[in-house]
Design a protein around this nucleic acid. Structure first.
Lengths: 329, 329
DNA sequence: CGTTTTCCGGAAAACGTTTTCTTAAAGCTT
DNA sequence: AAGCTTTAAGAAAACGTTTTCCGGAAAACG
């Protein structure tokens, strides 16, 4: 392996000079810089990030921590979108992302988590879908040992940023648009997780609209599960005018139930996942750009790691209507 | 940061001794080991993998290189399954996996790729879906600079292993079962990619069955695209008895076309992705356990990195019939 | 022209491990 | 008990960088 030492010899300078060229330090003359760069290309030198990290004590490594149910029957495309968005941006920024799943650290206590991430030389965390019940993970963030960016959860201190769409507004808007022009008054609202941040915000948005329009809203918790939403729909839909769900997956569950019951009720979703293309119905929903959210999370983490202070980032959302895709009957 | 040095002082031994304990070397007495371990827990010492990697010149880092179309309208769940399987196994083995997408390295030439992976201190590659046309990536593997495991592509030398199901047999079997008891003789076979390894193998299987049963098979290339399969079905299905596709996604496309044409033809798929749960039809297909395949790839890479010789691994497959899920009409 | 300042480049320590080599002690063998 | 082998533990070099500090030369100044 060709090292900085070889480059120095080739260029006839000291290794510190090479390092300075490599890192764009000031105080190195143009000619020296050229000599060094020539030597670098001549030798095909590739800086060793490991050595660099050891010496500088900066690894540029971050962990993308995601809640993925590895045995779910249905695929959740959101984690994949996060991964794509984060990794691409990380490459651009010269950062290094490792992906970690909740399940991999689920049984760890805080100290073990800290140890795990420290041994991996992780400096920052991007956490998707942290809920109030993820005690250890939450404590990990609060420990202040790592800079963190929380997707869809509120930040905790100056080392932590938060990034999410305006869920309250989005739910308000999509439900409003969905109900606009209809006579629906009795609504079944299938909420997400109890104690989930986004779920609570969306519920607030729903309630605000209900107050405004004088709707009767029955709220039930669907736990972001297709099956649960299906059961709830079975149970309550007959006496309701419409069903509004806090996620598209639950909306699919609701639709399936309606078909089973052989009744029609309009259904409103949330997320805009492309999976919906298979649902076969046109449906109002909220589109989040998950790749962009993850990319922004990486940018934000990078800012945090350079000493920036934690903040709250609101990402844009879109109201869309998923088109009927001539799907299988 | 508490270092091995601190542990050594605390335990009253030399740092080399601590290192030996850490790495389970022989020639260290039980009492010393206990003293050291006590010091480690007392101080909450976490070994620094960066330093360890620098010193030992073993990083245990591998790249999982995947072909993901980041702008695809439909989600392909397979990459996610690979990621989950690989990362979980990697943690188990103390390896370190970074995920890389084809798009990120697409415009690089071989040397740039080598440089990129070397600078990342990558020692091994797991590549999913390498095709004959990925020239640079292929040369990268052939360069011998990295140990590689190729999923769904043949190995090239002793540094490379290959892992895949028996595609030829699987296609033969599923088509046979699919046609069993029917009078279908004129088949539209929608193949995958031209020059794709798995596609060619599957086609061989299909042809073998055709010979055996005296089928008339029209072969067309669908490029693993839903849209393409849909077009081909439109074009040819009317004069055929059944449609056999080299992937589930294409099978969905075929089904959509049949609905548009308002004719019925049985359709056979391949892959067993859970997305099919939304397709609304019962369908014969081949189930691959992608998580398990990726996990085995990691194991195999680990073996390779320890000096093992490249080999060909055949993974099991299952013939399944995806159930009708009372889906949306 | 002497003094101060600025600018370059080099020497060397440090980062936290691993690993080789050495030495001291202890255990055998005869 | 002398010589031999085995075993345990330590000393120190090495891994490839970064970064601080220092010295000399050139430039600026009065």
């Amino acid at each position: 392996m060709v090292s900085i030492r070889d480059v120095a010899k080739e260029a006839g300078v000291a290794i510190s000079t090479v390092s300075k060229v490599l890192n764009d330090y000031p105080n190195v003359s143009k000619e020296t810089k050229e000599k060094v760069n020539a030597a670098i290309t001549a030798l095909g030198f590739v800086p060793n990030t490991i050595a660099s990290a050891l010496s500088s004590k900066k690894t540029g490594r971050a962990a993308l921590v995601l809640d993925v149910n590895r045995h779910a029957q249905t695929v959740d495309e959101i984690p994949m979108q996060y991964i794509i968005g984060a990794i691409n941006k990380a490459k651009e920024k010269g950062m290094d992302i490792i992906t970690v799943f909740f399940t991999m650290i689920a049984e760890m206590n805080v100290d073990e988590m800290i140890r795990y991430f420290q041994s991996q030389s992780i400096e920052g965390l991007i956490i998707g879908g942290l809920s109030k019940e993820d005690i250890s993970l939450r404590k990990l963030v609060e420990s202040g040992k790592f800079k963190s960016v929380l997707i869809d959860a509120p930040g905790v201190d100056e080392n932590t940023s938060s990034i999410h769409i305006d869920n309250e507004k989005a739910q308000y808007e999509v439900a409003r648009k969905f109900l606009n022009g209809t006579v629906c008054r009795k609504i079944l609202y299938i909420s997400g997780k109890k104690n989930g941040y986004v779920s609570e915000e969306r519920l607030v948005g729903m309630n605000r609209l209900a107050d405004e329009l004088g709707l009767q809203v029955l709220v039930r918790t669907g736990n972001f599960s297709e099956l649960e939403a299906r059961k709830l729909t079975m149970q309550y839909a007959a006496s309701k005018d419409a069903i509004i769900c806090a996620s598209d997956l639950m909306a699919i569950g609701a639709m399936k139930a309606l078909i089973d019951m052989d009744i029609y009720r309009p259904v409103c979703g949330f997320d805009g996942v492309s999976l919906m293309g298979y649902a076969g119905k046109q449906m109002h929903t909220v589109r989040q750009d998950f790749q962009n959210i993850a990319a922004s999370a990486v940018e934000e983490l990078s800012r945090l790691m350079e000493g920036g202070c934690g903040q709250d980032l609101i990402m844009p959302h879109k109201l869309i209507r998923i088109k009927y895709l001539d799907v299988l009957s």
